[in-house]
Design a protein around this nucleic acid. Structure first.
Lengths: 239, 239
DNA sequence: CGCTGTATTGATGTCTTTCAATGTGCGTGG
DNA sequence: CCACGCACATTGAAAGACATCAATACAGCG
């Protein structure tokens, strides 16, 4: 694995792929200019540790492309994923400089980083940026609570189906059958779901055997009937 | 169980027991006056359902006294607690009018409710109130993630010990041995921990047998050595 | 084409749940 | 004030789900 961090000249915000979904979605041109002046793009290779628990962090930022994981570990090595970062997600607290979680690149990944002190000032000067940050935080809180239901009450089969439905909904093509590339290894899936690798693997096999999904190599998943998979996940059909 | 809802004349904010910890902690006198005009106190008896999932809610608010639980349920009845509300905690989204969770009174409980539309306007007019709301939301998100670790990776014994440590830290007297009153039944503990009532009961018995806690009636817990209990909970000794 | 890390599959063990019975604290009404 | 009834809690035995340990298969890459 190449261990070189790539620092890139940050492209203009107006050309950014997450311009209309990230923290900057509601910014006007003058605020974008201010963001341009405090931002840096930076990339990591799959597998690299981006941040360790307890690190002092001079940055907050948005994930531009790829996938990263937020995890916590216990002293004996047991590890739980507490967040899955996909493009446009925001990372870090504007009001804290220590990382509460480890961040690892699940695929090659690029972040748009803002110097924390300057970003904090922007947040305080610009109510609609603060409101955007608040809305994104509340959405993350809802997602975390949804995941507490999965971790606390669902069976292994339901857990795996839930994760697959989530990924298919966010990243699948809409030709039939729908198809997505898993951004996670079996190990990362296990860490997300509070299971072991072996149990994840067995449940993937079982779902395939039952005709609910198809597998293409290690990462590709196909699904001809998302509603059926959703039923396996016991996802409440709330609107 | 008495099913009468009590509506109380709301006392002045300056005399409020949560004045310096709740959403209003950073408010100046003029903002407090504005809050006074939009607020109502309301109380519920232990066991009453305060809000059902999907209800339209004209209010957001703070819990003033007592304890309430935030839960989600699946169609087959499996239920998971996703939040435990103690005095000063904030409930509801200023930008949404539908409840995502059921709220139930775990003890007799009193809320300070704000009409949502007016509160939303206050948030937008008053950056430091919005920042306070943001900080509280981010703290809740951290707490939810901490709990994901408990749900996903800890053993039944560690789960029960974790909950007891949390409650002791927040509510215990500091005479020796420290003592707290559990605001939760065994059932509520089980729903919080992703366990069954029986398993919670067995672990409570085991912790008592091992000399880590004492039990006084159904709700009282004693602890002579919090560090030892914390070790059972495998709580990482982060500062 | 073989090597290395990842994934699958199988056999066994352990922990939590489930089902069932018993025990206990507390409020109500006699 | 005590006894009764009920909800809550505890305890036990058996079943089931997931983890663990171990072997094998497969994919991607030098």
């Amino acid at each position: 694995m190449t261990r070189i961090d790539l620092s890139l000249a940050a492209p203009s915000c107006s050309a950014c792929p997450i311009r209309h979904r990230a923290i900057c979605a509601t910014c006007e041109d003058d605020e974008l200019l201010r963001l341009e002046r405090m931002k840096t793009y930076r990339s990591w290779r799959v597998g690299q540790t981006i941040v360790m628990e307890g690190d002092v962090l001079p940055f907050v930022g948005s994930i531009v492309s790829g996938c990263a994981t937020l995890t916590r570990s216990m002293e004996d090595g047991r590890t739980q994923m507490v967040g899955l970062l996909l493009p446009s997600d925001f990372v870090g607290r504007h009001d804290r400089d220590r990382a509460a979680y480890q961040i690892v690149a699940a695929t090659d990944v690029t972040f748009c980083l803002f110097r924390r002190a300057e970003f904090q000032q922007l947040v305080r000067d610009t109510p609609h940026v603060m409101e955007r940050l608040l809305k994104m935080s509340l959405d993350e809180l809802d997602a975390a609570r949804e995941w507490m239901m999965v971790l606390g009450r669902k069976t292994a089969r339901e857990k795996v189906a839930s994760l697959l439905v989530n990924i298919l909904r966010r990243t699948a093509t809409d030709v039939h059958p729908i198809r997505a590339e898993l951004p996670l290894t079996r190990e990362a899936m296990a860490i997300y779901l509070g299971l072991t690798i072996e149990t994840v693997s067995r449940q993937m096999t079982a779902l395939r055997r039952d005709g609910l999904i198809g597998l293409e190599g290690r990462r590709g998943i196909l699904c001809a009937d998302l509603a059926a998979l959703q039923a396996e996940a016991e996802i409440d059909a709330a609107p």
